[in-house]
Design a protein around this nucleic acid. Sequence first.
DNA 1: TTGCAAACTGAACACACTGTCCTATACTGG
DNA 2: CCAGTATAGGACAGTGTGTTCAGTTTGCAA
Lengths: 210, 210
Amino acid sequence: MTDRLARLDPRARRTRALLRDALMELIVERGEYDSINIKEITARADVSRTTFYLHFTDVDHLLFDTMRDIYAEIIAVFEQNDGPVPGDAHEFRHIAEYADFYRVMFSERGSSAFLSRVHDYFAEQIQHFLEKRLPDGHQTTLPLPLVAHFMAGAQIGVMRWWLDNDQLLDADSVATMADKLMYNGLAWGVGLDDLNAIMCGVDHLAADEA
Amino acid sequence: MTDRLARLDPRARRTRALLRDALMELIVERGEYDSINIKEITARADVSRTTFYLHFTDVDHLLFDTMRDIYAEIIAVFEQNDGPVPGDAHEFRHIAEYADFYRVMFSERGSSAFLSRVHDYFAEQIQHFLEKRLPDGHQTTLPLPLVAHFMAGAQIGVMRWWLDNDQLLDADSVATMADKLMYNGLAWGVGLDDLNAIMCGVDHLAADEA
DNA sequence: TTGCAAACTGAACACACTGTCCTATACTGG
DNA sequence: CCAGTATAGGACAGTGTGTTCAGTTTGCAA
């Protein structure tokens, strides 16, 4: 990220930083992404509206650029660890750091493009991680992409719940809970070994065939 | 749904149906929700733009009304079954029926409000279901809302993957896979009992304490 | 059937945001 | 210091919005 911006004219670097900060502020203050327009952003950033178009095509473009900056650190961690290692709470710590931002962006008033990209990025990272760690030629029970998207969705689901409840738990606790639920399954999560028996019509979920 | 509309003047009923259909068509054809405007919808529906405002405040309002219609059937199934019973593929069959619609709405070019509402609705239904089926006074290992949002997110994650791959599997297969992965856990899903051992630094995921 | 109330139409309007000009000014790096 | 580049600020056409209003069609009940 620093590398990406270092080459820019300091004026341009400053302008982009101002626009980025203005957008972040507006998202948090307004609690809504959709209705934020270029006029407001440039007014907040104290930058000419014309200048905005010299750098970005629209608000989404600015958002994605901002996103790249925000994610630089978490990407670095992933690359260091060969992926999203289980029990690693970096994602949740990252979410906690920008909680006010994510609370809006993951909500009803956020951006579908943003959420979608986060989901796809998670799924991709998870799949790469699983592929690296599984023995060569190993045949998985279920299609690996399905498992990856399942995990990515579950991760985001927990994050949404966590954010909407003002992060009553600390990042490490939630990360551990989500991982354990993922690895151990639902029966463990609710604390009932004979969970299937309690559910109705679940004969075909016998869990031991396959 | 029929009840809700039955009271309306047939002219109003007709108008709303035309607007609803026009919106659905435009979403599918355009492959994008954001850029659809009222002018287009009314033109497609062959209805005056003024009339639109007699029924809805904006496009989102129309979308949510449409959503309620679409969900009428699946809600009926839930109420019949006391919730989203495991192994029940109604959600996936429903998604399959409106696949072209959901493929857009769950995508980068969909609506965050729509996705968010679906997620929250799933989580709510799942939580109610679990609460009903668990023994009275039972202490769950993890907070029930966390489990519910985990499951809701996972469900949507699988749906997104399924839709983006043009539903190569049939609805019942995917539903079963998602349920099994949920109940049996990740180790079963990838077909490795000693999964934790393969992962690095997972001592704290020992899975048996708690 | 008639008449009233409701739904619909089409045109007009002010308003706001967008995207793109243009010229003038201020700054950076060599 | 100079050439190149970023920015400012005003102007513009285009487009969607939300509302108003007068006039028409339609449903429903007396």
